[in-house]
């Protein structure tokens, strides 16, 4: 019996089948394609969000719009100065007055039934003073965008 098996093994070439390798790699590829979101637009401001502990994760990316507040990076400091500025999408805007239009542009992409779930994520640099943040908050309240998320990093428990 055993000699019979031995003979058979000796006959075939000792190669590992790699036929399933592409399938595995494609699976990984699709996973990464689905999971990752290509970030559109470049960051023109330096934004280092502060740390906090009581964090909520924002689930649906399509329901979130982002407002950045920070100082322009060196490349843009010549044009925009060094004072804290607001960036909507990929543009630095003059002031909070541009926010309602920006919110409206995002809103039209979302089905009407889910408008109440739209969240604004404020990505604010830790060194910015509250004045500009307050102006943005007032503008958001005026445009009836009340769900707000102060973006923050998880604090490492030391």
């Amino acid at each position: 019996m055993s000699s019979h098996f031995k003979k058979k093994r000796g006959d075939s070439k000792p190669t590992i089948s790699t036929a399933s390798l592409p399938d595995i790699v494609f699976m990984l590829l699709f996973f990464f394609m689905v999971v990752t979101v290509l970030r559109q637009g470049e960051m023109k401001l330096k934004v280092v969000t502060p740390q906090a502990t009581q964090l909520t994760k924002l689930e649906e990316k399509s329901l979130v719009n982002y407002i950045y507040i920070g100082r322009p990076i060196d490349k843009y400091a010549k044009i925009y100065g060094t004072k804290p500025r607001i960036q909507l999408g990929d543009q630095i805007v003059d002031g909070p007055t541009n926010i309602p239009l920006f919110l409206e542009q995002h809103k039209v992409k979302v089905p009407e039934s889910r408008h109440t779930l739209i969240t604004t994520s404020l990505k604010v640099d830790g060194d910015v003073t509250m004045g500009i943040v307050q102006d943005v908050k007032v503008m958001l309240r005026k445009s009836n965008q009340l769900r707000l998320n102060y973006s923050a990093k998880k604090k490492d428990e030391a």
Binding site: F32, V37, L38, A52, Q54, K57, S151
Partner: peptide, 21 residues
């Protein structure tokens, strides 16, 4: 290519509800 070009951005933060204006 996808590994290099994409970055997983996880957005977390403190969720607040503003009072109406």
């Amino acid at each position: 290519f996808f590994l290099v070009t994409t970055q997983i951005v996880e957005d977390k933060g403190i969720l607040v509800k503003l009072p109406p204006w």
